[in-house]
Design a protein around this nucleic acid. Structure first.
Length: 254
DNA sequence: ATGGTAGAAACTCTA
């Protein structure tokens, strides 16, 4: 089973890229973030024509997460149950015996800001929720935009980024608390090229200059990690005209 | 030097 995650930064704008990419990569599951559309305007018909069923937790202008599947999946919740959140950042589904969670962790804007504090509270709620979810569903994966680069090798210029949002010690510790529940970062189960990133700022020609961060992750439960065959970042969509600022991450399970 | 671009929506906020 081939499972992908991609922050598309507006599903409406990126729909042509997404449809081309679905045809090329043919994932069984695609977790999307930043759809930036309401459920009412979700392009379900276009995706159905491309061969995908969709579950969407939408929101106007900001956020919005979806799960695309080849066959219908069973939705099992939106948001973090014990965390009151006006922002659409989580959707979960069962598909072919796997609990799939698509997450869009808050950006955090700047260390110490109000949005950063929200990010840290959000992470704590995620950890508490996933502890129970992992116990109840041994075959679970949590894929999405975590807005944290776990290690210095996930950062193009660690010195320049030191202490900044996405890289700060507190954010890395928060992500490690998720991983410490028992999850594996699928990407690091395999040998990878140096300078592997999943996001590049639109500004300053960051993509061409290889100024990226690896902030999009597929976290696998131990049962699924044992079945992982490969995990790659597909940078091709980032090369296109009018791209998302993120590249898809693709994980293959046996 | 605190820049730059992109998206949605509304003349600003978020990333």
């Amino acid at each position: 089973m081939k499972i992908a995650t991609w922050n598309v930064n507006s599903l409406r704008v990126r729909l042509p890229h997404l449809l081309d990419w679905l045809a090329r990569q043919a994932p069984d599951v695609a977790c999307l973030q930043e759809t930036k559309c309401e459920d009412a305007t979700f392009p379900a018909a276009e995706l159905a024509a491309a061969g995908y069923h969709a579950l969407h937790h939408g929101q106007r202008t900001y956020n919005g997460v979806a799960i695309l599947t080849r066959e219908p999946a069973v939705e099992c919740g939106r948001g973090i149950p014990a965390f009151e959140d006006a922002q659409s950042r989580v959707i979960a589904a069962d598909y072919r015996g796997v609990r799939i969670v698509s997450v869009y962790v808050p950006n955090g804007q700047a260390v110490g800001s109000e949005k950063y504090q929200y990010k840290m509270r959000w992470f704590e709620a995620l950890v508490e929720w996933l502890r129970d979810e992992l116990a109840a569903h041994p075959r679970i994966l949590v894929a999405g935009d975590y807005n944290v680069a776990p290690e210095d090798r996930d950062v193009h210029d660690p010195a320049a980024w030191e202490g900044k949002v996405h890289v700060s010690a507190a954010e890395r510790e928060a992500l490690q608390r998720v991983i410490a529940l028992g999850f594996k970062d699928a990407f690091r189960l395999f040998e990878q090229p140096e300078g592997s990133f999943s996001w590049w700022d639109y500004r300053l020609n960051a993509f061409r200059r290889k100024m990226g961060l690896r902030i999009d992750h597929v976290l696998l439960s131990p049962a699924l990690a044992a079945e992982a065959k490969a995990c790659t970042i597909d940078v091709e969509p980032r090369r296109l005209e009018r791209p998302s600022d993120h590249a898809p991450v693709i994980c293959e399970l046996a």
